[in-house]
Computed example of a mutant assay.
Amino acid sequence: MARRRAPQRAPEPIRATSMWRVDQVFLARRGPRIEVTCSLVNDQGGLRNLSVTAPTEDPVQAVRHAARFIAGKGNVSGARQARLRWTREQATTEQDALIRDRLLEDEFLDEFEETLAAVRDQQR
């Protein structure tokens, strides 16, 4: 007697547009410029990194430049509670690698929110 197979569940569809959230921001000096890498997560556990090299060596201007770039993507919904740190090679001790730069976090979030509001206004 042949056994019947249990019906297979259809695989979950891949969402064409997934909303992402900024989780962490890393800064690294690359000569006279600063490279900013944003780690993004989505509601389904996906992870992706976006990097941009700011045309400046000023950290405040670099995070503002990166915030405009990331918020302008259109499918990044927020950056609340995003942690900002310098990369390990920029830290002089292991403890330095753990320290968050809260002032730069505020700069990033302010610029991100302003750009995101402008993008949403344009879409209306």
Results as ranks from 00 to 15, higher is better:
R21Q: 14
V36K: 03
P11C: 00
R15Q: 12
F108A: 04
W20P: 00
M1I: 09
M19N: 06
R68K: 15
I99M: 07
T37L: 08
Q122Y: 05
V36E: 12
E113V: 07
E105S: 00
L84T: 01
N49Q: 14
I34F: 03
G74S: 08
C38T: 10
D121S: 05
T87P: 00
I99F: 04
T87R: 12
R120H: 07
R9N: 11
S51I: 04
R102P: 04
G45F: 00
G46N: 08
S18N: 07
S18I: 06
V119M: 10
V41A: 12
A91F: 05
T56Y: 02
R120A: 06
I99Y: 05
L40E: 12
L27I: 02
G31C: 14
R120T: 04
E111T: 15
T115R: 15
P13Y: 02
S39P: 00
G72F: 07
A97H: 01
L27F: 12
G74L: 10
D43P: 07
I14F: 07
R80N: 09
E111G: 00
E89L: 10
L103G: 15
V52P: 02
E114K: 13
C38Q: 09
A118Y: 03
L109K: 08
L104E: 14
P55A: 10
I70R: 04
L27M: 13
A6Q: 13
G46K: 01
P13I: 11
A97Q: 05
L47M: 07
R29P: 00
E57F: 04
S39R: 13
Q61C: 06
A54C: 07
Q61K: 10
R85M: 05
L109M: 10
L104W: 02
F112L: 00
E94D: 13
E107M: 06
P11W: 01
Q8Y: 06
A16D: 01
A79I: 01
L98W: 04
S77E: 13
I99E: 14
A118K: 09
Q8D: 14
V52L: 04
M1L: 11
R80C: 09
T93W: 08
E105L: 00
E107A: 12
E57H: 05
L98A: 11
T53W: 01
T87D: 04
R100Q: 14
L98F: 04
A2L: 09
Q123K: 11
E57T: 06
L27R: 10
V119C: 01
A62R: 03
W86T: 00
D106N: 07
G74C: 08
L116K: 12
L103W: 01
V63H: 12
D96G: 01
R68V: 02
M1A: 11
E111D: 12
R5A: 14
D23A: 14
N49R: 13
P55F: 00
P11V: 12
E105M: 09
R100F: 02
G78M: 05
S77F: 08
A2C: 05
R68L: 03
P32K: 05
I70C: 06
W86G: 01
A97L: 10
Q8C: 12
P59M: 07
L104K: 02
R85Y: 10
A71K: 11
R21H: 14
D121L: 14
R100E: 15
N42I: 04
A62G: 08
A62M: 04
L84N: 02
R64Y: 06
S18A: 13
Q24W: 09
A6Y: 03
F26Y: 15
T93N: 07
R102Q: 12
V25M: 06
T115G: 02
D43F: 12
P11D: 09
